[in-house]
Design a protein around this nucleic acid. Structure first.
Lengths: 190, 190, 190, 190
DNA sequence: TAGTAAACGAGACGGTACGTCTCGTCTTCTT
DNA sequence: AAGAAGACGAGACGTACCGTCTCGTTTACTA
């Protein structure tokens, strides 16, 4: 039924790799589509054909580099599991290639609602949602105070992470995560 | 000794007003210096003479529009005072002219360390610091659990605000602030 | 016995018709190979397989549309015969579909020597040559001044036609042809 | 009353020189505005600010290189004066830099009526007109057959020149001009 | 009351990147 | 094998802004 040349997986991979590398080196703003195409050895049109914006390229690059990261570990021990997931998030935030991409995508989202929707839907929302789900499940199992508002708890856990990443540029490490979890979740466990 | 014309206060005001208006209408990204100068009826050089970047113009515009906002109310009742200050922060975040400017400045800070330093120093840092100071003072007065880490507490209060502003675009209102304060600070008061 | 598909006469005809139509409508420059293929319902490769350039396509289209036009009428009366041939040339020049093609081919020839050679060889040269031949024959029969330079005479007859077509865009009709012939050839006849 | 920076004569000259050089080397078609700007060391916008099209740049370059050429010599001897003017025209046609420009402008005129109008008005028309004027004056002085149509005579003189330049690419030199003048004008002088 | 020097509006300049278009080639599937 | 379809690398198109640099003009201090 269909016919014609198919999308080149080779070109796709070269473009995503180039986009990540240039954003890591020069930052999101200075990573122009021209430069990404140049380094990838591709034509600009090949980028515009498959992605609407630079943000979309980088979002796909992150998803490719980080496929299964939405998984939430379940050892039966919620505090440890939360710490594990958040350690993973922090690892991405401080990754020298992915960190600038995350920060750039959030920056772009401030001026472009489509970027905001897309990144929230595919990058930031799912991680948040699995955490919420796990906390609710924990409440149903009677191991977490049922009075607590799970969404608020997750805001209290993730909010400070993004706050440090984007605003205060304070230390972001596993110890900080452990402090957060200890302050927010531990008092509510049974 | 010196002579010649002095800086025109009229031009300065026209430029700051134009910058705020255009950023409110078109967003931070599309608010070019050309457009700001055009609307202000000024030459581009007049902007470049007095400000190094678009971010610096907007930062000054915000400070002008919002001079005394660093003040932290002190009624002797810390929970209420915290709520008051945070209500003020939320009011700026949701202001139709200032909100986009805050978000734009944080976005610009992700690609430009000078913007990051300047905005943190003059806009975001001071509000954070007065809150920390007040919490420490409250601990010294014995009205707040002395074990608590005041910096962490402030992260728990402000982090979720920025998280909603920049990432999840969830509801940002006084009720949410009250929830935060109730969950984070109230359990530690004596 | 033979194997493989043969050249599709159907595709060839669709391409030549599309090329003529688009050149007539949009002019030579805007008649891109992409557009010709699109309108013909053919693939671009089918054009590139059989013709080296857009000019070659159009040249073949003109030849197809105008096969036997090199014929020079011979009624024994040279002045009338010249007029007849030149009326035919003018008819092509002012044809709404072929005129733009002629002008476009001459335009393309200015930047591409291969187009210049090919069009001169197959389109413009032969008409010129039969006229020269006839004039020489006429001299040999003693009906035309043998001192006259036949090539120069043909330049004097055709030059003004192309000059009006390409440069001055003055009136090009049978009356003008008759004036030319009367001024150039008639005084030399016996 | 007026204000602002003035047009840079230096940039203008660099652009015109670059345009002539590149057209001479690569031909009209391949002389892109990007390449002209690159070689001139100017920005593209500086070209687009002052000229609507590549053709307009080259037309001005020709006029600059060839300011007073519309002058028609008047020694009182019309045949010699015609030869002089036409020798000048031929000199431009065969100039290695200007020749390709003339041919390119005429080529562009075939697809763009504005180019056709502009070049006819400023480059090709005036030369034609002074020749017509001179022939008419000569008729009024009684030194040229008053029956002759001056416009037709000029077509007979110039037409073959353009015909050779654009179509047959035959020899274009002073001798050919002299033949033309001898065949067309001399028989009509008194 | 001049003279003078800096700030002003205006806008041209050399650049970079934008997103689109077409080129001529290459690849895939269909006939 | 030839064709329709269409992706690919390449690169020019014309536009928007960048930050710098003249231009006259206006303003306000100095002599």
């Amino acid at each position: 039924m269909s016919s014609g040349a198919r999308r080149s997986e080779e070109a796709r991979r070269a473009i995503l790799a180039s986009a990540l590398a240039i954003t890591g080196e020069l930052g999101y703003e200075r990573a122009s589509i021209e430069a990404i195409a140049r380094r990838a050895g591709s034509g600009k049109q090949t980028i515009y054909r498959w992605w609407p914006t630079k943000a979309a390229v980088l979002q796909e690059a992150v998803e490719d580099a980080n496929g299964a990261s939405t998984a939430f570990p379940d050892t039966g021990e919620v505090v440890g599991d939360l710490r594990s997931q958040m350690h993973g998030v922090v690892a991405f935030f401080v990754d020298p290639e992915l960190g600038p991409v995350f920060r750039g995508l959030i920056a772009a989202a401030q001026s472009d609602p489509e970027v905001a929707d897309a990144t929230l839907r595919s990058l930031f929302g799912p991680r948040r949602q699995v955490a919420i789900n796990r906390l609710v499940a924990e409440q149903q199992r009677g191991r977490l105070d049922p009075q607590a508002d799970a969404e608020l708890l997750v805001d209290l856990l993730y909010g400070p992470l993004y706050y440090r990443l984007l605003v205060t540029r304070g230390v972001l490490d596993d110890h900080y995560v452990d402090q957060l979890v200890s302050a927010v979740v531990v008092p509510l466990t049974r």
